[in-house]
Design a protein around this nucleic acid. Structure first.
Ligand code: FES
Ligand code: FES
Lengths: 138, 138
DNA sequence: AGGAAACAGGATAAAATTTGTCCGATATGA
DNA sequence: TCATATCGGACAAATTTTATCCTGTTTCCT
């Protein structure tokens, strides 16, 4: 559930890609401009690529560019592409074995926190977050 | 931010302690009844003890008992006693070094998720969660 | 007094996760 | 062909999670 460096880096990279919209940037440029470890970022971009969020262009003058409109990329999309399903408590995951699940009164609380957090992350698109000065109220 | 086994176990133990209210139970009993690893649970109870949530009675026929009324013990109290401050993204922690903090539009989103989750956890007391059928009373 | 039951606190450690690096293979533009 | 890139897999350090064990101390009971 916690947002790791991986996801944080993914967000920063995608934010940068959304600035020069449609532009293709190599990992080196993204890494330098956002001060992120290069080879780690490379791995992260592969995940985003597989998730259909960015697109890779191989070969000389290649790099990465957004595949979707920034307004259609939410924080949740990035979280999920990088970290997978958002889970508050392993015990409350659907399909997990937990002998107490039926009578557990705490379970629903974790589920609610989960839903609220996901909802909040879905609310914010890269488009609404980019541009430094965007006074997004929520 | 994720709820670890430690916190999950703490909640189960405190729930059991709240059933026999005021009763003192040794770690062995708590461990057996809730099927939790004994020595691990012992460590967790020490944390709860230091946080003033439970009280330890040493010596033969000793054990642990609640120090506060179950209606005054929230999930958040337990989370904090065991895992410390609730944090969604390390980058967004107060007082942390992050060069981009000032102009970062994502920061407020993590903070909001944090506030909402903490609020939700504070809303539920052990009293309101115990008794399987969630009959509210205090 | 002595023994058994129980917690306190520190040391230790296995397993899992996070946070990366590196390299050989492949693709592509000039 | 050569320089520039990504791809995918292997590897690895650091940290966190999930425990266990041991020695010491307290307290009840006989
Ligand atoms: S869901 Fe497993 S104990 Fe609550
Ligand atoms: S708070 Fe550090 S980059 Fe957003």
């Amino acid at each position: 559930m916690k947002v790791t460096r991986e996801t944080d880096y993914a967000i920063r990279a995608v934010l940068l890609l959304s600035e020069d919209r449609g532009k293709t940037l190599p990992v080196s440029a993204l890494s330098e401009k956002m001060d992120l470890p290069r080879s780690f970022l490379a791995k992260i971009l592969q995940k985003l690529s597989r998730a259909g969020i960015v697109e890779s262009i191989r070969g000389a003058s290649g790099g990465y560019r957004l595949k979707r409109n920034p307004s259609r990329i939410s924080l949740y999309d990035l979280y999920k592409a990088v970290q997978g399903e958002f889970v508050v408590n392993e015990c409350a995951v659907e399909g997990r074995v937990c002998s107490r699940k039926e009578r557990c009164a705490v379970h629903p609380v974790w589920k609610k926190i989960e839903r609220e957090a996901v909802r909040e992350m879905k609310k914010h698109s890269i488009a609404s977050l980019s541009g430094e000065k965007s006074s997004q109220r929520s």
